[in-house]
Design a protein around this nucleic acid. Structure first.
Length: 103
DNA sequence: CAAGGGGCTGTCA
DNA sequence: TTGACAGCCCCTT
């Protein structure tokens, strides 16, 4: 279909992230063909409908940390989902090198 | 039609 | 090593 918007391209890519792996905003933007759109990826996820099935929790920043305020409600939620998939947290972050999605 | 903002990133000190 | 700053582009008012 005519995915006339970057938003849909981004959704497609995120939907392809396998369980137990994570990806960064920059990586997703790059896969979509837009190297400098990392920020937009974040904005797009923020605007996702609540009934969306996208694994948005598998998207983190380049430091191996969650982009929310540490220990905040959404932060904990994302952390829980990741741990449920096998990601092991070391304090407030995890080893990005170890869990990042290799495409 | 024009302006502003955003769940980021990479570089420099 | 950690902290701070500016830049990137698309969508919504």
């Amino acid at each position: 279909m005519q995915t006339s918007s970057l938003k849909e391209e981004i959704w497609q890519i995120i939907a392809a992230i396998p369980p137990g792996s994570v990806s960064t905003y920059g990586q997703i933007a790059r896969l979509a063909g837009y190297p400098n759109h990392a920020r937009y990826v974040g904005t797009t996820l923020k605007n996702l409908p609540h009934d969306s099935r996208l694994p948005w929790h598998r998207v983190v920043n380049s430091k191996g940390q969650l982009s929310f305020t540490v220990h905040s409600q959404p932060w904990l939620k994302q952390k829980n989902r990741l741990e449920a998939e096998g990601i092991v947290f070391l304090g407030d972050s995890f080893s990005l090198k170890k869990f990042q999605w290799l495409n």
